[in-house]
Design a protein around this nucleic acid. Sequence first.
DNA 1: CTGAAAGCGCTTACAG
DNA 2: CTGAAAGCGCTTACAG
Lengths: 340, 340
Amino acid sequence: MKRPDIGEIARRAGVSRSTVSYALSGKRPISPEKRDKILRLVEKLGYRPNASARALAEGRSRTVGLVIPPLSHRLVDAQLAFVAVLTELASSVDLDVLLSPSTGDDDRSFRRMLNGGRVDGVLLMEVRMNDERIAALEESGVPYVLIGRPADPTGLHWVDIDYGGLVERCVQHLADLGHRNVALLNRSAELVAAGYGPARRAVAALEAAAARHRLRAHPICCADDTAGGEAGMKQILEMRPRITAAVTINESALQGVSRALDRSRVRVPRDFSLVGVVGERWAEDFHPRMTAAVVSPAELVRSAFAMLLERIADPGAEPRHVLQSPSITLGGTTGRAPRG
Amino acid sequence: MKRPDIGEIARRAGVSRSTVSYALSGKRPISPEKRDKILRLVEKLGYRPNASARALAEGRSRTVGLVIPPLSHRLVDAQLAFVAVLTELASSVDLDVLLSPSTGDDDRSFRRMLNGGRVDGVLLMEVRMNDERIAALEESGVPYVLIGRPADPTGLHWVDIDYGGLVERCVQHLADLGHRNVALLNRSAELVAAGYGPARRAVAALEAAAARHRLRAHPICCADDTAGGEAGMKQILEMRPRITAAVTINESALQGVSRALDRSRVRVPRDFSLVGVVGERWAEDFHPRMTAAVVSPAELVRSAFAMLLERIADPGAEPRHVLQSPSITLGGTTGRAPRG
DNA sequence: CTGAAAGCGCTTACAG
DNA sequence: CTGAAAGCGCTTACAG
């Protein structure tokens, strides 16, 4: 009951192996009778071309690689979206997805993905400001697209969310409402330390905007979970009444933020304003609905995948990039600064 | 600057290709000088064996497949754990992970994974009570382990969480506290309709336990998100004071559950008792900490992976299974039924 | 301890 | 429209 190979099909159909191959690929005209006979046999015997043999002969694997961050940084919702959406997209064009965990430290899995001809292209997520994996990708010659971008993205292919610009816009919004002391509820200290782009750019943007609007900036890191959010928000609320508003980019902490506000009996937006750069579901789940720049990781990965396909098709293509920068949707969490 | 192949290494080292191969695999003794020379060249030129060629020659791919549910059912936290943990585990033993989305309806990606020799083993998640993908797996001859189990799991290799037993235990706990009308806040109606194991077994167990304890069962489906949880819980609370307690297996709905309780000014556990079958982080994030059977998807996937490796190594191995059934940890969400 | 060669199962010029 | 054959880059008996 072993799986038949192409030779078995050819034998039974009374044709050569090349005829079977061409009948299946459609790369050359085959007489209708032979074609039908072959296709019937393929169906009946459940023949599928061996992927390795095909990859070896064709020189491509019909597989794209996705490099995911290791478990140690708790994976957040947006990352799940990357995996799930990419898998669906790839499957819709008959590509497979190969996963590799990697920080970039050493990582055999990552090198294997690059050098063994396992994949035709790579999507690298969680890019850091200074990310040595980019050099490895570059050297490997495998087409790739970054989700996120390093400090200097010149000449690279990437998609990203404009955390810098969005945080600035959030601060601007708060400044317009009269807030003079604004906190940033950032991602975790570990991510900041690791040079994680969004976290770093959020801080930089906060400070730049604060300088421009002549207000005080208070960046706070917090773990990507409820406990982290509660602790971070509590810390901020202790600085009331000086601090009257916060910007957050930490979706996963929001439930804790909410709880801290409740516990401190601080009412939003009367006593305190909150504006976020978060996914739709997070903005919506907040109560009241959060004033936020609503980002879409799914959309981002869609762009990245499209770019990757282009690049695979035309390896010499000019570097392109997509910077997602949605405008702020007003919700019920921001209002005029309370009177000092 | 093209990647060197094994022949290039052999030429430069002045040995045959087989010697290079054996030096790398260690499957046959090589004289130290040649070995060193070869390894140095491999290092210097960055040689990695071509994965397809190796897979073709060896007859195995050093890759395991993970079949994930399609996006349409929103992926929940536990599913992310499966992906992330499996990827790390696999990478720790130099295996790659190939992803495939599938419900089992038609799905080329799934069939491709099975029949193209792409993977040495498969982990299938989100198994339904009556899941035709199992027959496809069986027929393919590829070793596999199910995460979840069908109605009749006899002779199969699987790991699962004992939702049935756990829900029964939860009902028992509530019965002991004097509750006579108990609701079940289940997963979504779609999942129930699709025959999703945990959702189906939860209902069956609820009803069985209700019969045994002579109490009334009220199963309610709710979407796997905050809005769903809020709606579901609201529906249940409207049946107060008759219904005094609920069991939930829907982690993703908990934030909404919490909100519905707050809005209705129902105090837990004084006015209403809640007990869950949920992951640690969900039990912990609830306020007060939830009385719950705390399940661990990460642990489950660890068992599944270990079983898969065993099965790959010994395809004729006896069917094994693991049924996770943690005891209930008391939290602050269950108490005596309020006086009717 | 080592090498020449077959073979894994495809695809695709080459020749007709 | 079709077939015989080379070749993709490995691994592993086979022979020494």
